[in-house]
Amino acid sequence: MMSASTEAHEKGSPDFVVAHHFDSADTQFDAGRLGIWLFLVTEVLFFGGLFCAFFIYRNWYFDSFVEAHHHLDKQMGALNTVFLITSSLTMALAVRAAQRTKRSETVNMLFVTFLLAGCFLVVKYFEYTHKIHDGLLPGAMFSAQGFATQHAGVFFAIYFVMTGIHGLHVVIGMGLILWILIRAHRGDFSSRYYAPVEGVGLYWHLVDLIWIYLFPLLYLVG
């Protein structure tokens, strides 16, 4: 997020310079954080459209939603919830380690976060293949037999789009975590400069936040 200026600057630590258009490291830091928060706002509204669709169709096709949601695996969903909240904890600890210039702790925590994100995707993979196998698919592709109600296809459309886009965010998050992991390993961060760790952290917590809503709405109450 930050643009480090090339011009030499006496401010800050040797491996970090305050960009020329900021008056202090604090301002630069706050600017970055405000920028991330604004970005998170756009993420909420982006997912918001899908939540809106979910509530409307749930109202209309209540019976279909109830019937269809029984085909999701609560245990798998709960397991994934545990993976994500744990990864949120380790991410928070990674930021905390970076704030205290604990290099190897930062790297380790990021690594655990990365692994937990991977676990989440593995579980998701098994869920998806199972659904595809059973023909529990969106709209026109829906081919499962034996449904008492008519509109399970709408439920699975929403299920796949929501979890698909969320999964995409997890993948992007893993890329970002890997990136700061490498930078942390290189020793880029210190108590004076850890903005990228914190920024990726905020993004990761948002991914968790969205799952916190997706899980009960899709798996538990339908």
Binding site: E10, A25, F29, S191
Partner: peptide, 8 residues
């Protein structure tokens, strides 16, 4: 802290 450094 209006110094050059950010204090977390």
């Amino acid at each position: 802290s209006h110094g050059p450094d950010h204090v977390p």
